[in-house]
Structures are given as C-alpha cells and as structure tokens.
C-alpha cells in the first residue's frame, strides 16, 4: 500500500500509531491532558529495507520507535510485525514475539548493565528465549562478538572498560543474538565520535546485507540517514510530514519542513553554500501537549495559508512512493492543485 517501490508484503506495518502520555496535575493528580508524543503515524517497512526516521529533538522519533516495539503501552493504532499484531498482544504472546524485533539504543553507556560482563550481556536474550547449554551459549556469544568485530578475549570484561564504539558493538551483538528480522536503531550513532560513527554505520550495513535485516533507523543526522536509508520519513511534532524514497526526498523535498531541515545541513563547498538560500525557521516547536489547530507546522511554516490554520492536512500519496501531509499539494475536484507547488530549493538547481 505505502511501499510503492517494492511489490513485496511489508514486514512492519504501522497504522495510525498514537502514543499519548497523560499529564496529571493538581492536588488530586487528576488527568488534565496528554503529551501527544506520537499522534497518528502510518508507514510500512518492507523486508530488507531501511527506513530512516528524522526530525528535530522532541518530535517523537524515539517514542515512535519504542512504541513500535511495545516498550510502551500504546494509546491507539496498530502495529504488525511479520504478520503478527504487536500492539494488542498479551504479555506472554508479546514475549514470544520479542525475538523477531530488537533494538539498538542511543547511549551505549546507559544501555549496558554496568554489573554484567560482556558475555552475560550478549547472552541475556539467549538466557531468556533459548534452551542452549552453557557451552553452546558461549560459542554463540563468541560468534556474535566476531560478527560485530569485538575481540573474543574481551568476553569477561565489564562495559566501562570499553570505548563508546565498542560498547555500541556490544549493544548490536545483543540485538543480533536471537536472529531478529527487524531492528529499531534508536540514534545508534548520536553518542559516538564522528570517526566511530562511520564504523558503526558500516557495520550495520554489512549486517543488513549478510543477515537480511530490516531497520528503522532513527536519527537527526540527515547526511547519515542519506547514507544508510532507502526511504526517509520526516517527523514533526508527533506526525509524519513527509515520507519519500531517499533520493527524491533529498533532491526535491516536498514539505516546507523537510525543505527547512535540508537547508540546515551544512554545505561543505563555500561557493555552493553562498549560492544557496537557507530557510530559517522562526519560533519554537509548539508543545506536544497543546499542538496548534490545523496543521502542526502552521505556526512556523514559511508558506502558510489560511486553510493550514483550520484543517489538519491528510497524509497522502502525491507522486508514486511520495507521501506528504501538506495543503500545498491539495488538489481540487477537477484535479488542479490549489496552490502552485513551490519551486525546488535554489541550491539544488544547477
């Protein structure tokens, strides 16, 4: 349906996912509202694909990733992974689904228990879901350490004895232990040095090729997403603003927010940088507890129209494989656009 590029059945199917966190206030701790961290997100990821999820801090990227793996009890919507309903599974059923879906976390320091040795950390999924003997577990742990490029001799060390990049490799080895099909990478490189980032991203790509993994790659680093992702979803304030194949998105961003994000990426060539005009957004992101009426982005959008302040735009396919939630691409009854599409960014035109 939404994966126009490939004809295969999607591995991950997310429909209208909502994750609202209640706000309690007052003397009686009554529920007075909700932070709409994720508010109606819909996408598919097909087998072997990498979907990049980008957006600024606080837009709900990480919450979205965690909600898909049911690390939170979601407010609404449905998530199907490998044909099984994750969103409404009971605790035991969910536990049996866990091996299919794993996660790599942002902060490799915080995501490893400081009191466990590397071998025990990597073996934890095996302890939980398999009945291997001790020797088989050790062999599997060593095999995983080889796969992620960790020296086997480090198996008895503790996480604090490693560098950031090595710790992230431990986290990746743990995520791989159960042969998952789908891995949510929650900003796996954000806490690493630039030199290490490339190593980890290349490792993730190698593993994807050799094991046929499917990634949801959450990041705020647009250039890294351009490198690794096949399709890119841009999130703003709990909603997806635009979802397009990578090359289309970077060459011709449709949503004004995508355009602003891309124009914020530093341009290494000074001449090109001088020639390009930056879209500089003013104001702050509205509070997800009290999003604006109409389009989420209407308070900061450079090409805002009247309709944007009244009606929330639908998330629609405007070109093959390209989805956008913006009134600029609305069509009237006779098929003409209501507003002329804005020309592409000047920096992109030759």
């Amino acid at each position: 349906m939404l994966d126009a590029g490939t004809g295969r059945e999607p591995l991950v199917r997310v429909r209208d996912l909502k994750m609202h966190f209640p706000i309690h206030s007052g003397l009686l701790r009554r529920r007075t509202g909700a932070v709409k961290a994720v508010d109606g997100v819909t996408f598919d990821i097909s087998q072997g694909e990498t979907l990049g999820l980008v957006g600024e801090s606080g837009c709900g990227k990480s919450t979205c990733g965690r909600a898909i793996l049911r690390l939170y009890d979601i407010t609404g919507g449905s998530v199907t992974i490998a044909g099984r309903d994750v969103a409404h599974a009971g605790p035991n059923e969910l536990r049996r689904m866990r091996p299919t879906m794993q996660m790599v976390f942002q902060d490799p320091q915080a995501s490893l228990n400081p009191r466990m040795t590397v071998a025990r950390i990597i073996a934890e999924p095996l302890d939980e879901h398999t009945r291997l003997s001790r020797a088989e577990k050790t062999a599997r742990v060593h095999d995983l350490m080889d796969r992620v490029g960790l020296n086997r001799a480090f198996a008895n060390r503790y996480p604090h004895e490693f560098s950031g990049g090595q710790r992230q490799r431990i986290g990746i080895a743990r995520a791989l232990a159960l042969n998952p099909r789908f891995i949510v990478c929650d900003e796996p490189i954000a806490a690493l040095d630039v030199s290490i980032q490339a190593q980890v991203v290349n490792l993730l790509e190698e593993l994807q090729d050799s094991l046929g993994l499917t990634y949801l790659f959450i990041s705020h680093d647009l250039s890294m997403v351009r490198h690794i992702a096949d399709r890119v979803a841009v999130m703003y304030l709990g909603k997806i603003a635009e979802l397009s194949p990578r090359d289309d998105l970077y060459a011709d961003p449709l949503h004004p927010y995508t355009r602003a994000l891309l124009s914020a990426v530093p341009e290494p060539d000074p001449e090109a940088a001088a020639a390009s005009s930056r879209t500089i957004l003013t104001g702050d992101v509205p509070s997800p507890a009290n999003p604006p009426k109409g389009c989420n982005f209407c308070t900061r959008c450079p090409s805002v129209m009247d309709i944007c302040r009244r009606i929330d735009p639908d998330f629609r396919e405007v070109a093959p494989g390209r989805h956008v939630a913006c009134h600029l691409y609305d069509t009237t009854q006779d098929g003409r656009p209501t507003a002329a599409p804005i020309p592409t960014r000047q920096g992109e035109t030759p």
Binding site: R95, S111, G171
Partner: peptide, 10 residues
Amino acid sequence: EFVLAARSIG
C-alpha cells in the same frame, strides 16, 4: 536504558 533493553528482550 539497560532496563529498557531488557524489556525489549522480553
């Protein structure tokens, strides 16, 4: 996060 990681393991 390591508690969250354990939760994601099940």
